[in-house]
Simulated scan of single mutants.
Amino acid sequence: MQRSTRERIVAEALRLFAERGYAATSVAEIEAAAGLSPGAGGLYRHFRSKEEVLASAVREHITRTAEQISTTFEQSAALQEQPLADRLRLAAAAGLRKMREEADLIRVLFRDLDKFPGLVTEMREGIANPLYDLFAKWLSGQPELAAADEDWDAVALVLGGSIVNYWLAQDALHEPPNLVDEDRFVGGWTRLAMGLVGTRAEAVQ
């Protein structure tokens, strides 16, 4: 499916912001990357400013994440017959996929968004918090854990935060920390998660 000019501008701008930084990326460079004549003002026919392009990128990712959260809730019921460890492994793999999908936006967030506190708030409330909330609800909704008296928000933050940290470290260092690849990480993460929830899982089985 061919992207519109507006979509190309947003996608290429986000890529350039992630590679070079927001301040180091010019409007003309965004126009050239999007297939427009650089310096001819094509970007301004769709956006009022470079900042508005960044804001649009953030909001489009927020919208997509909200749709994914809704879909994930609908699909999670189909996995209930699998062992808890397998469901946890799938959850970890899904978390890493989400980080890869949002790679450019995450790089911009950590490099540049402190200059735009309003967008930081939108990212926190539109992506970060809903994802942790989704994971907490997912954990508490697993049959083995449903009756457990646990602070699932805190557990979700511990488990979800380790996925975020693994991806960020790998992205910053250009290889997995200590050369632990994703399969090994997911395996270790699953064992850790089973350790955190295992006692309660056994108690309610």
Rank of each mutant, 00 (worst) to 15 (best):
V108W: 05
E175W: 15
A154E: 13
I69F: 00
R6D: 07
I106S: 01
N129D: 15
D114H: 14
E19T: 10
A57C: 01
E51W: 06
G126S: 09
S26G: 02
E101G: 07
R200T: 10
I9H: 03
Q75F: 12
F110P: 09
Q80S: 14
A147F: 05
A57S: 07
L43P: 02
V180T: 10
L43T: 00
A18Y: 00
G141T: 00
A77V: 14
T121L: 15
M1V: 08
E74Q: 14
A201G: 02
G95R: 02
A94N: 10
D114G: 11
V120A: 08
I69H: 07
R59C: 04
I62M: 03
V186Y: 02
D114I: 14
I69A: 01
A146E: 15
G95N: 04
D104I: 07
E31H: 02
L157A: 13
A23I: 06
F135K: 05
E202F: 08
M123F: 13
R45C: 13
R100F: 09
P143L: 08
R111V: 07
F73I: 06
R184T: 15
R3L: 05
T121Y: 13
N129S: 12
V120Y: 06
L134C: 07
Q68A: 03
G21P: 05
V197T: 04
A66W: 11
R15V: 04
K50S: 05
A40H: 10
L157F: 13
V155C: 00
Q68N: 08
R191E: 14
N129Q: 12
I69C: 05
R107A: 13
S162L: 11
T72C: 10
R3E: 06
S4E: 09
M194I: 07
L79D: 13
A203Q: 11
E7H: 05
W138K: 00
E7N: 08
E51F: 06
F110T: 09
K137Y: 04
N178A: 15
I69D: 03
L119D: 02
S56W: 01
Q75E: 14
I69N: 00
N129M: 13
D112L: 02
I30W: 05
A78C: 13
M1S: 12
F47G: 01
G160F: 01
E175N: 14
S76M: 09
V164L: 14
Q68V: 03
A93Q: 12
A136K: 06
F17P: 01
S70M: 07
H61Q: 09
E175F: 15
P38C: 02
V204P: 03
G198R: 04
R100Y: 05
E7V: 08
G161T: 02
P38K: 06
S70P: 00
R200E: 07
T25L: 00
E31T: 01
K115A: 15
Q2N: 15
G118R: 11
A66H: 12
D153G: 03
G41A: 07
A32Q: 09
A148D: 03
L131V: 11
R15K: 12
F47Q: 06
E60V: 02
K115H: 14
F110D: 12
G21C: 08
